[in-house]
């Protein structure tokens, strides 16, 4: 399958990329790693007349340490995230989740920014970014930038706060140094998208849980926080029974899909089981 014809531009800077977006507007589509967009173009689910490739905008690539935050450029590949000691030290939850995405070849091309803007509810990057209280930096026309908390970034299925003439530029993650982390992804076969997955990161103090953050993948049209669980975990000892009780309400407030992999009730059940597993693993229990 071959995409429909399009014109191709490969700007060298963020300024030029924004100018290209302004010029072509609705007819244009931004290309990051292409690992979601190219399958869409090949199946002709979309046929933009212009493709704006961000591959040469080097200022959007790379990971930097800004004191209490890590800053990940939108065009940073999954592979670069996995290779980063800064990420595994200060935002281990993201490394753990990214390691489960697709396969090595796709992780060499796919970018964190592309995954977030694509906003597939079964995608594995949203839940950890949400659980880590990240902020997303969005550049608009005229050089304006705005910063959106992850909780406001995901709006609906495949819909985020990034407007049509805007670009996601950075993911800013507050450091969670010393927090344990685990991403529990439930699939039936290897190389599958999450049926449900749970991203948990925990700060343990002397065998009990001082703080916990829990994000859910594919339990609604966007990634969700299991806030009831987070609160119930505070002060609990990191034992099977205590964690089981705290995780019982993991599916509260969710609206999971029903499909061939499982109906909504099954997913609700999975959410509490997987949350228990993820929290126990994150707490090192």
């Amino acid at each position: 399958m071959i995409p429909a014809s399009f014109d191709y531009v490969a700007p060298q800077s963020l300024t030029d990329a924004l100018a290209a977006l302004a010029e072509h507007g609705d007819d244009a589509k931004v290309l990051a790693g292409g690992q979601s967009l190219l399958p869409i173009l090949r199946m002709r689910l979309n046929a933009p007349s212009v493709v704006i490739d961000l591959g040469k905008v080097t200022e959007l690539q790379g990971i930097s340490d800004e004191g209490d935050h890590l800053v990940i450029g939108a065009m940073t590949t999954y592979a670069a995230v996995l290779a980063s000691e800064a990420v595994s030290t200060h935002a281990a939850l993201l490394s753990k989740a990214v390691a489960t995405v697709a396969d090595p070849q796709i992780r060499h091309r796919g970018t964190v920014g592309g995954a977030l803007v694509h906003a597939d509810p079964a995608g594995d990057v949203g839940a950890p970014v949400l659980a880590l209280d990240a902020e997303l930096v969005i550049a608009g026309q005229g050089g304006a930038t705005r910063t959106v908390p992850a909780a406001d970034f995901f709006e609906d299925l495949f819909t985020t706060a990034v407007g049509e003439d805007e670009l996601l530029t950075q993911i800013r993650i507050p450091k969670h140094t010393g927090w344990g982390a685990h991403y529990e992804k439930f699939v039936r076969v290897s190389h599958q998208w999450s049926i449900v997955a749970v991203a948990a990161t925990v700060r343990a103090e002397g065998g009990s849980i001082a703080e916990a953050r829990v994000g859910l993948t594919n339990m609604g049209s966007t990634p969700l926080r299991a806030t009831a669980v987070e609160q119930a975990l505070v002060g609990q000892s990191a034992t099977e029974e205590a964690v089981r009780q705290a995780c019982a309400r993991a599916a509260d407030g969710t609206n999971p899909p029903s499909d061939l992999n499982g109906d909504a009730d099954y997913r609700r059940h999975l959410a509490s089981v997987l949350t228990r597993r993820a929290v126990l693993a994150a707490a090192g229990a």
Partner: peptide, 29 residues
């Protein structure tokens, strides 16, 4: 497969593996 699942089309781009059915030739420029 043409759906980026099977990996038969794997090549190395700048020394790392990619599925060449899921990369535009212009991206290899």
């Amino acid at each position: 497969c043409d759906t980026s699942n099977c990996g038969a089309c794997t090549v190395h781009l700048d020394g790392r593996s990619v599925k060449s059915c899921n990369v535009l030739a212009v991206q290899a420029d």
